[in-house]
Simulated assay, not measured.
Amino acid sequence: MPAPYSLPDMLERIYENQLALEAAIMELSLWAGHEGAAHVDDNICGALETIGENAGHIKQGLARIKQTGKM
Rank of each mutant, 00 (worst) to 15 (best):
E27P: 00
D9W: 09
G46V: 12
A20D: 01
A55C: 00
G61Y: 05
E53L: 07
Y5A: 02
H34W: 10
L28C: 15
P4R: 04
A37K: 15
K66P: 04
W31H: 14
C45S: 14
M10V: 03
A24I: 07
A55L: 06
A38L: 15
L30G: 14
H39Q: 15
R64P: 03
Q67V: 00
A23K: 11
G69I: 08
A23N: 10
H57T: 04
E35A: 14
T68W: 02
I58M: 02
R64Q: 12
S6A: 02
A47V: 12
A63N: 01
H57K: 05
W31D: 14
A37D: 12
L48V: 10
Y5H: 02
L21F: 11
G36W: 09
C45M: 13
T50K: 05
S6W: 08
Y5F: 10
Q67D: 08
M26C: 11
K59D: 02
A47C: 03
K66W: 09
L28P: 09
C45Q: 07
L21E: 05
G61T: 01
L48A: 02
A3F: 04
A63M: 01
G69M: 04
I51E: 05
A32Q: 12
P2I: 05
T68H: 09
L62P: 03
I25K: 04
E12L: 12
L48H: 03
R13F: 10
A32N: 13
S6Y: 05
I14L: 06
K59Q: 01
G69R: 01
L11T: 05
E27A: 12
K59Y: 05
A63T: 04
A32Y: 15
A37M: 15
G56D: 00
G36H: 01
A24P: 03
L62N: 03
L30W: 14
W31N: 08
A20F: 08
G36I: 11
P2L: 08
E22W: 11
M26Y: 05
A47N: 07
M26T: 11
N17Q: 08
L7P: 01
R64I: 13
Y15C: 07
I65A: 09
G52V: 05
G56A: 01
Q67Y: 03
T68S: 07
V40W: 12
G61N: 00
D41R: 14
P8Q: 03
H34E: 14
A55T: 02
P4V: 04
M1T: 06
N17V: 09
K70H: 13
E49I: 09
E27V: 10
L21K: 09
P8G: 00
D42E: 12
D42N: 13
A23H: 10
L30Y: 13
V40E: 15
C45T: 11
E22D: 08
N43E: 15
A23G: 03
M71I: 09
D41N: 13
E27G: 07
M26K: 11
M26F: 08
Y5I: 09
L7N: 04
L30M: 15
N17D: 10
A37Q: 13
S6D: 00
T68Y: 08
I58A: 01
G69E: 12
L21M: 11
A63Y: 04
M10H: 06
I14G: 05
E35P: 02
L19K: 00
I65K: 00
V40C: 03
Y5C: 10
